[in-house]
C-alpha cells in the first residue's frame, strides 16, 4: 500500500486520468493497515487518483470498523462462518450505505470476509485489491505495453 502510494506519487507509475473509474467506489480501512498501521491518508490519495467517485464509509480511518474477519476469524474455518457472517452485519450495512458498486481493500482477510458478506447480504459489490485496479488505470510507457498494442502503434 505504502509502496503503491509512493510509486504513484513519485511518478514511477503514471495513472491515466482518462481511464479513471467512474462508478462509485468505496474503500475498506483494514484494522492492521489503518488503525494499527497509520496508512489511511495514503489509501485516500490512491483512491482519488484512481477513481472519480470515491465514497468513504460512515466511520473510517483509524475509527474504521473491523470487517469481521480479522484476528484469525477466517482461518477458523466453516464452523465459525455463521458467527462471522452475523457479526459482519455492521460492515455490510456500512458498505450498502455508501451506494458503491466497487470496493477496494488492501487486506486479504478483509477481502475474503467482504466477498462472503457480499454473498450473504446481497450487496452486489465488486471487491478488488489496489494491485488489480492500478493496471487498469495506468498509463504505461510504450516499451512496457502488450505486444499487439505495441505492434499497432509502431
Amino acid at each position: 500500500m505504502q509502496v503503491f502510494h509512493d510509486y504513484v506519487k513519485d511518478g514511477k507509475i503514471k495513472l491515466d486520468p482518462a481511464k479513471k473509474i467512474t462508478k462509485p467506489v468505496t474503500y475498506q480501512d483494514p484494522c492492521n493497515i489503518s488503525r494499527s498501521g497509520g496508512l489511511w491518508e495514503e489509501a485516500r490519495y490512491l483512491m482519488n487518483a484512481m477513481c472519480t467517485d470515491f465514497r468513504d464509509m460512515a466511520v473510517n480511518r483509524e475509527y474504521n470498523h473491523c470487517c469481521g474477519g480479522g484476528g484469525g476469524y477466517i482461518p477458523m474455518g466453516p464452523e465459525y462462518k455463521r458467527r462471522r457472517m452475523a457479526s459482519g452485519k455492521v460492515k455490510a450495512e456500512q458498505i450498502r450505505e455508501t451506494g458503491a458498486e466497487m470496493l477496494v481493500v488492501p487486506c486479504h482477510n478483509c477481502f475474503d470476509q467482504i466477498r462472503d458478506l457480499n454473498k450473504e447480504y446481497d450487496l452486489g459489490i465488486e471487491v478488488v485489491h489496489f494491485k488489480t485496479i492500478i493496471p487498469q488505470v495506468w498509463d504505461l510507457p510504450d516499451h512496457l505495453k502488450p505486444k499487439e498494442e505495441h505492434g499497432e502503434t509502431g
Binding site: 488503525r35 483509524e62 473491523c66 480479522g70 465459525y80
Partner: peptide, 13 residues
C-alpha cells in the same frame, strides 16, 4: 476469546 472478538482494537480508542 476466539469467537466474539477479532482484536481489532477499536474499543481502545
Amino acid at each position: 476469546a476466539y469467537g466474539d472478538c477479532t482484536a481489532c482494537r477499536r474499543c481502545s480508542l
